[in-house]
């Protein structure tokens, strides 16, 4: 380096008192010389710099997302969707718990002797996720006002939440099922009915309010259970035929939901 900025040159630069040629020389030198940058920076108004830094802090402050969402972000979830999900974290935790709880009930059921009680357990387990979807959709949402003002439809938010829980819970459930030898195929018997009911709830939510939907789904399922019970056929849910029927019903519900979503664009949400 042939020369550095002397005190006089620095003062004149910070006062804007240099002609353009000298100013350009100073600026070019600054880009290449960290020592002179440091000296120059000391001449800048420190109060203003503190103010600007506070502005930077406010603009860059973002709450750290919980790990399940960071995982989903890495898997390609859009940032706006992740923000919506993390804002409602107070909801998705109990939801995750309820799903895990449903699985525990299912596993517990398979370990019980094959009585009618066990079958009842398995029959009520599928209702849990469907009811929690409806509950999450309902007015208990602490960010409901906020969400209503966003271009997200409420259904989309509900779908996102469902997808989040399923994406996180399903691998756990499957791994647990594979790792534990005493968990038979029965434990998964409730998975398909559960999926069917959840999809049905989501579809109905495009027409009705959350509480109505929850009741309709619950009553519908209980009716099915009641009919099976009176016919002494409760264990029929475990049969391949019943599982196939649930799979078909789930696909139908999914198709209906897809049609509703693509043909009915209501900004701000349904219901």
């Amino acid at each position: 380096m042939t020369w550095h900025l002397g005190p006089e040159l620095l003062d004149r630069y910070s006062d804007g008192d240099l002609d353009l040629a000298r100013q350009s020389a100073v600026e070019t030198h600054l880009l290449a010389c960290a020592d002179c940058r440091q000296l120059t920076s000391a001449k800048a108004p420190q109060d203003l710099l503190t103010d600007i830094w506070q502005g930077v802090q406010i603009a860059t402050a973002r709450p750290r997302m919980p790990w399940p969402l960071r995982l989903l972000r890495k898997l390609g979830l859009a940032e706006t969707d992740a923000v919506i999900l993390s804002a409602s974290s107070s909801l998705y935790r109990p939801w995750l718990l309820s799903l895990v709880g449903a699985f525990v009930i299912g596993v517990g059921g398979t370990m019980m002797p094959a009585t009618e009680q066990r079958s009842l357990y398995l029959l009520f387990a599928p209702l849990l996720p469907a009811i929690t979807v409806a509950a999450a959709y309902d007015a208990t949402d602490p960010i409901r006002e906020l969400a209503a003002a966003t271009p997200f439809s409420k259904l989309r938010i509900a779908l996102l939440r469902t997808a989040t829980v399923v994406a996180i819970a399903l691998p756990v459930v499957l791994l647990a099922g594979l790792a534990l030898p005493f968990v038979g195929a029965d434990a998964f018997a409730w998975l398909l009915p559960s999926l069917t009911l959840t999809l049905l709830a989501l579809t109905l939510l495009t027409w009705w309010t959350a509480s109505v939907t929850a009741w309709v789904v619950a009553v519908l399922w209980l009716t099915v259970v009641g009919i099976l019970r009176s016919a002494q056929q409760l264990s029929a849910v475990d049969t391949p035929f019943a599982q196939l029927a649930f799979a078909v019903a789930a696909l139908l519900a999914l198709a209906a939901l897809a049609i509703r979503l693509t043909t009915h664009h209501a900004p701000g949400g349904y219901a």
Binding site: Y13, S14, G16, Q23, E27, L30, A34, R37, Q38, T40, S41, A42, K43, A44, P45, L48, L49, I52, W53, V56
Partner: peptide, 15 residues
């Protein structure tokens, strides 16, 4: 990074 660079950037932007 801010402490290192904001000062001279501010002066240069002022010019």
């Amino acid at each position: 990074l801010y402490e290192r660079h904001a000062g001279w950037l501010l002066l240069r932007l002022n010019r």
